[in-house]
Design a protein around this nucleic acid. Structure first.
Lengths: 337, 337
DNA sequence: CCTACTTGGTAAAGCGGTTAACTTAAGGAT
DNA sequence: ATCCTTAAGTTAACCGCTTTACCAAGTAGG
């Protein structure tokens, strides 16, 4: 079933059918239009997107590029990422585009994807700053980065105030009288959002005159079970902390579980603050106090930028950061009380 | 940059370039082949997939269709689904295909997707039996269903022994001396895997002469927080149970949390068994005993069938069920001890 | 020496659409 | 009666690639 067949049945040329398909009504009478439309409905004909893309040079395809972490740890498994992917999918669908999902280890891998599919735009999740120039140089279509910390680069990035998030995290704990702090975080070596949070955190400590050494950092993967391990390590390690700041909620959940397993009660024996403010925070026991970010906001902003660039055929530069706050719940003890 | 340009630079026809691109070596000398390849490398040329698809009538596109549950509950958020999607993505990538991801509310929505994109094959996740005939009638490309219980339908389904899973779940609890059982489950009204598990569960009870009434079923969404609620309901409800069977791990996690919040200790005051055997089971406290299924196995099997159908251009019919077992840990108390 | 086959290639049609340029008939203005 | 405009199409080229049919030159066989 193709456009020629429809044209034949309607007794018109393919051009006319194409015109009604594309809403160029000026060229076709109401009568023929109705006739063609009824035939289309009747036959269930759907134009071939590929053929259309070929001539229009647009694909209605949006690439969603997520880091491939290896066979045994998937990016999706962090609820935060799952939520954001789901939200992006909704916006892509709502804009009548199609989502091509690709996990990549090395960002260079996406070039064939993007250049041979003529993808109209792409979202990149969790790319590090030093990978940005290469990606930029390789690609000339609209792209939006989410959670890439790369000030000065000519990109659109949608994120949160990471530095401030880390800062607030420490301030909050300090404000409750905590001075012996541990930080549980993924690697901070690469320049990125985590490093910014770390900087904010340590700056707040310094400002408050609280000693914070590298030994107070515990490195973890962003998985529940890796974090459980860390929770146990901290409990057994005798680091003499009163509070632990985690750089994501999933890690905080794990740490709390680890602590519990070693007999420590949160927040009585140890306070914990998370980062992300997942819906699940509300349902833990204790309810998790967490630095709040809003993935719905991120997905919406990111989509707005991407689709604006696509429809206006322009390249924007922006670095939008969602203002951040602490969602206070029950996992941090007030030492002044 | 297109094939014509490459042909020009190499001083050959486009047909020849096409031949080396497609490995039809018989038609081209080693010399010209080397020349063309070096030009391709040099220019970074990538053939346009759309144009190729148009003539070849294959797209190298695999659809991944997942249920759209609404704005506030995403399918991805269940770690089980996240894991399986990630695993499928890996196999699709490994086979050099591209993944088009689409959430759909009504299965009919995927028709335009599949027919206008000429998708080469598709995976359907979590489709109910009564939706199968319609999907089948609408689509004539290779598709593989995951976790669809639809015996008698002419489809490829990859799943587990759901009935036996439910059966084993009850048998396990009964074997430990439990006779007052509650079941926490999503809706069992529609014919599907959950219903099968339910049937197995109740049959095992009946066999053992244990009364199990509808009042012993607690309905939940497949989310952590919905399940926490149920845990609390059960704790307060005075249902006088000694054990709770959950139809997924994420639900079990929530239920345990709910119970704990009400002061019940697992497994001392209440036993809980899960279903899925997520990696996280190992890291809870208590470690969660769970009916074990293997998503890696599912993804592999599903891919094998799909790619076999695609390459052999045939339609298979199969209903492969992974054998199932109980992964015993610490969340069920032995009442005989 | 002539024919037949092989090697290495080319020309052109076609995949299913879109679109710029052209056509034709009718109506209105002068 | 003539010219201009407009409405409603049509024709044909083209998007980037694949593929079938065809061709020329070299080589082998008889």
């Amino acid at each position: 079933m193709n456009i020629r067949e429809i044209a034949q049945r309607a007794g018109v040329s393919t051009a006319t059918v194409s015109n009604v398909l594309n809403g160029k009504l000026s060229k076709v009478s109401d009568e023929t239009k109705a006739k063609i439309e009824s035939i289309i409905k009747e036959t269930g004909y759907k134009p071939n997107v590929m053929a259309r893309s070929l001539v229009k040079k647009e694909s209605r395809l949006i690439g969603l590029v997520v880091p491939y972490l290896g066979k045994d740890e998937d990016f999706f498994a962090n609820p935060y990422n799952a939520h954001i992917i789901a939200a992006l999918e909704r916006y892509i669908r709502a804009n009548d585009y199609y989502l091509m999902l690709r996990c990549v280890g090395d960002p260079r891998e996406i070039v064939p994807l993007l250049s041979s599919w003529n993808v109209d735009g792409a979202f990149f999740l969790g790319i590090y700053k030093d990978e940005v120039p290469e990606i930029r140089s390789l690609i000339d279509i609209p792209i939006v980065f989410l959670d890439t910390y790369a000030p000065g680069e000519e990109i659109v990035n949608i994120g949160i105030e990471d530095y401030r998030g880390g800062y607030l995290s420490a301030r909050y704990l300090i404000g409750k009288g905590h001075t012996k702090l541990a930080l549980v975080s993924p690697d901070i070596a690469s320049e990125g959002v985590i490093r910014e949070r770390y900087k904010g955190f340590t700056d707040a400590c310094r400002e408050a005159g609280i000693p914070f050494k590298n030994g107070n950092i515990y490195y973890t993967e962003s998985t529940y079970h890796s974090a459980v391990q860390i929770g146990q390590d901290i409990a057994f390690g005798g680091g003499d902390y009163t509070a632990i700041a985690c750089m994501s909620d999933i890690v905080a959940f794990g740490v709390i579980e680890g602590l519990k397993q070693c007999g420590l009660r949160v927040p009585y024996d140890m306070s914990v603050i998370g980062f992300d403010n997942l819906p699940d925070c509300e349902f833990m026991s204790p309810k998790l106090t967490s630095v709040a970010q809003d993935f719905e906001w991120k997905a919406r902003k990111a989509s707005e930028y991407l689709f604006k660039m696509i429809t206006d055929k322009c390249i924007l530069v922006a670095d939008e950061r969602q203002p951040i706050r602490v969602a206070e719940r029950q996992s941090v003890k007030n030492l002044y009380e």
